[in-house]
Every structure is written in C-alpha cells, then in structure tokens.
Amino acid sequence: MIRVLVVDDQFLIRAGLTGLLDAAPGFEVVGQAGDGEEAVRLAARTRPDVILMDIRMPGMSGIEAIERILAGAGGPLPRVLVLTTFDLDEYVYGALRAGASGFLLKNSGPERLLAAVTAVQGGDALFAPSVTRRLVEAFVRQVRSAPAATPPSALGMLTSRETEVLKLIAHGLSNLEIADRLSISEATVKTHLNRTMTKLNLGSRTQAVVLAYESGLVTPGG
C-alpha cells in the first residue's frame, strides 16, 4: 500500500486527486493540505511514502515545504512528486534543488498519475525520461552563469563506472535501461548510484541529474 499526502491550494484539485487515489487498489491518501505549513505538519504526523506537492501556494511555498519536510523527516524520506503546469518557471527549478523526486503534469490522465506515484515510490526520479531531459536542460541554460553548487573537481571522488552511471542517469535512462546498456545487473546499477549519492552528499536521484549538468559532466543536448 502506497501512502500518499496530497498538497494543493485548490480544493477541487485536492478532491480529484484524493478520489482517484483512494479508488485505485494499492493507494491510500493519508491526508490533504491546502498550503505548505499544513503540509509540513501533516507529513510529520502521517509519514507518507509519497507527497503530491503543489508549488505556488499562499504562505509557505511548496519549495520551502519540501525543504522542511525532507530536513525534518525521521527514518525513510518521503518521495515528493511535484504538481506542475510545466511552464518551466523558476519554481520548478527550485523544487529540483530542494530534493523533489519527480514531476507530474496537472493535466495528466489517471493512469499516468498512478504510474508516476508508483515510480517515485519505487525509487525512480521521474516517470518520463523525456520530461527529465527537457526540464533539466532548460534549468541548466537558465543557471549557466551562476556558480555550480558542486564543483567539477568533486566528481573526482567517483570511480569510472560510477561516473558512467551518473552520465546515463542524467540522460534520463532508468536503472533497467542503464543495466542493459552496460551489461550489468539492475542491482549493480543501484549500488553504483547509492555510492555516488553518498560520496557527493546528494539526497535524491533528481539532484544527481542536476549536478551532472551543472558540473559539465553532461551538456544540454549532448
């Protein structure tokens, strides 16, 4: 059973998402929040597996809520799936930095919603690799003039295989696709990724993707 917290300042959207999730087998909505402050409180109390998080809300934004939830979580961290209209604004980029695990278009159909929640709960970054590439490349173009959060020299801690896996993750490949590409097991891919995230002090797979672009390991369109 995947336990989900729904966060959106629009009642009809919250109600629609809640109704869909509760009607689907294998999902349980453990709470609804209309703003960031309520989301932080409910996340601490209900300890959901996945949080569907709106970004633009009155008061505390979704980005700040993500940061507080992940910083204050005890035990396994919840996966945060950002609800977005996908207009590629700075709020979405901020969610990447805050540690969001994935992105869901607000006009997505029911099957895609359920698949997205399942994917991030299972450890995948985004439910559609094409979204990963389009979003991150736009993000990198916008912040290219800013100092990188992690300098390229930090990547020197990685082994050649870990670097190779990080590159493929940044290109939007799933663990299974990477395993096929490198002729290794999916479990080995996960091991390389976990070691990479530990060495670079990263909290999510999505942050690893951003770092790969910001550091120049992977270039937009490359």
Rank of each mutant, 00 (worst) to 15 (best):
M1D: 08
V4T: 05
L5M: 04
L5D: 03
V6D: 02
V6Y: 05
V7T: 00
D8C: 05
Q10N: 02
F11M: 02
L12D: 05
L12G: 01
R14S: 06
G16E: 05
T18H: 07
G19A: 09
G19R: 09
D22C: 06
D22T: 03
A23Y: 08
A23S: 13
P25Q: 10
E28V: 10
E28R: 06
V30P: 03
A33V: 02
D35G: 07
D35S: 04
E37G: 11
E38F: 01
V40N: 01
R41E: 14
A43F: 06
A43P: 01
A43S: 12
A44T: 10
A44E: 14
P48G: 05
D49G: 03
L52Y: 03
M53Y: 07
D54R: 03
I55Q: 00
R56P: 00
R56S: 09
P58K: 02
P58T: 09
P58Q: 03
G59C: 07
S61W: 05
G62L: 08
I63A: 03
I63V: 15
E64G: 05
E67R: 15
I69P: 00
A73H: 04
G74V: 09
G75F: 02
G75Q: 03
P76F: 04
L77N: 06
P78H: 11
P78G: 09
R79L: 08
V80I: 15
L81M: 08
L81G: 01
V82D: 09
T85D: 10
L88A: 15
D89K: 13
D89E: 15
D89A: 12
E90D: 14
E90M: 14
Y91M: 15
Y91K: 11
V92I: 05
V92W: 00
Y93C: 03
A95Y: 06
R97V: 02
R97P: 02
G99I: 13
G99C: 15
G99A: 15
A100F: 08
S101H: 15
S101I: 06
L105Y: 11
K106D: 10
S108M: 06
L114Q: 06
A115N: 02
A115V: 04
T118L: 11
T118G: 12
G122V: 05
G123C: 13
G123S: 11
A125K: 02
A125E: 06
L126W: 08
F127E: 12
A128Y: 08
V131M: 14
T132N: 04
R133N: 12
R134H: 13
R134S: 15
V136R: 00
A138V: 15
F139M: 12
F139S: 04
V140Y: 14
Q142P: 01
V143M: 10
V143G: 03
S145D: 13
A146H: 10
P147Q: 13
A148W: 07
A149E: 14
P151Q: 05
P151K: 07
A154W: 12
A154S: 14
M157I: 08
L158M: 06
R161I: 11
R161W: 07
E164H: 03
E164K: 00
E164D: 08
V165S: 01
A170H: 06
H171K: 10
H171L: 15
G172C: 01
S174V: 07
N175C: 12
D180M: 14
R181G: 02
S183Y: 14
S183W: 11
E186G: 12
L193P: 06
T196Y: 05
L200K: 04
N201V: 10
T206W: 10
T206P: 01
Q207F: 07
E214I: 03
G216W: 10
G221L: 13
